[in-house]
């Protein structure tokens, strides 16, 4: 989901220009599986890569609340509604853990939010697709969170301590997300023909965008060598995508659904599911801002931020007033 942040060309200060002695000590630490902590020395390119990846990851969690929030008031039962509400709250929480992790690299929360709202920072392409029916909530939990988990489990061992710690907490919480999604799909597939058709339609629309979450194919990826060496990333986009497909296809067949890929078939020799060509032009279009919901997502986020300005200002003014009064009372008492 979030490795998409690594697939832009890095144009800053290159790692090769760093002090070789410091660089060697840094690499030795990583090779020994020690964590890099905020006050430790790190190459500028490591810092930049992490800032980009963690902030994009955080923005994705925050924007990711929108497609699901769309169905909160229309959930078909109280059970479904409390589960979805808890999931959306988790996404907010995950965004906040990640912003906090990115802040340890020297970027303020206000700067990150400003970059998102100005369109300078990206978020995962997947959240630019609409949730058209209740079954989409099932498909999002099952596929989107499933893909996210596949991506995030190796990140729990990321060399940067604050990011790894945030990911451990997130992964613990996210397994409920995928299970609740699959349960929605299962219920629909065991229901009426119309309900099963709704589940099939959701799978057909979400399958390919979910595969795109892993980012471009390794042949196209611009960033792998350093990020692998620095243990920010441990598996390539294609490896993770294949792992996700292998895990997910049998789950879909159990539901009695058909994947929208005529080339999908099991390779008996390797045990892997072989799949058709991904439409990378769609991926690039959505990432560049021209997906079905990009404008809407940004407008909603911008409006929410704008609507909260007076609350943040009032909270700060109140805190300032209380602090001043406490100081004045102390002087009076002396």
């Amino acid at each position: 989901m979030y490795t998409q942040g690594l697939n832009v060309k890095d144009t800053g200060h290159p790692a090769a220009a760093e002090d070789p002695a410091k660089l060697a000590r840094f690499q030795a630490k990583i090779d020994a599986e020690d964590k890099i902590e905020p006050n430790d020395w790190m190459p500028e390119a490591y810092r930049r890569t992490l800032v980009r990846q963690i902030s994009q990851h955080a923005h994705s969690e925050i924007i990711g609340m929108q497609p699901e929030g769309n169905w909160l008031a229309r959930a078909p039962s109280l059970r479904r509604k409390v589960a979805l509400l808890a999931k959306v709250q988790d996404e907010a929480g995950h965004g906040l853990y990640l912003y906090a992790a990115a802040e340890t690299l020297g970027l303020s929360r206000e700067e990150m939010v400003a970059q998102l709202l100005a369109g300078k920072a990206k978020y995962s392409s997947i959240f630019n697709y609409p949730t058209l029916s209740w079954a989409d909530i099932g498909a999002v939990g099952w596929l989107v969170d499933g893909a996210a988990i596949m991506n995030q489990i190796p990140l729990c061992r990321c060399s940067y301590g604050p990011y790894a710690r945030a990911m451990i907490r997130i992964c613990k919480e996210e397994s409920f997300h995928q299970r609740q999604g699959y349960e929605i799909m299962l219920t629909l597939c065991r229901g009426s023909a119309a309900q099963k058709a709704m589940a099939q339609d959701a799978l057909s629309r979400w399958w390919w965008p979910s595969l795109m979450m892993f980012g471009p194919s390794d042949k196209e990826s611009l960033h792998s060598a350093d990020t692998m060496k620095w243990k920010i990333k441990r598996f390539s986009n294609d490896d993770l995508r294949q792992k996700f497909i292998d895990a997910t296809v049998p789950q879909g067949h159990y539901l009695g659904l058909t994947f929208p890929d005529p080339d999908l078939k099991r390779d008996e020799a390797s045990g892997h599911w072989r799949f058709g060509e991904i439409d990378w032009s769609e991926f690039k279009r959505v990432l560049a801002g021209d997906g079905p919901c990009n404008r809407q997502r940004m407008a909603v986020r911008g409006q929410a931020h704008e609507d909260g300005v007076w609350v943040r200002e009032a909270a700060l003014a109140h805190a300032r007033k209380r602090a001043e009064r406490a100081a004045a009372a102390k002087i009076a008492a002396e």
Binding site: D90, A166, L316, R322
Partner: peptide, 23 residues
């Protein structure tokens, strides 16, 4: 457990409760 941004201590406690103790 982590960190939060808040205007004062009372709001920080509230935010910490929401962000770090949901389970």
């Amino acid at each position: 457990a982590g960190s939060v941004h808040a205007a004062d201590a009372a709001m920080a406690l509230q935010a910490a409760r929401d962000v770090y103790t949901r389970r």
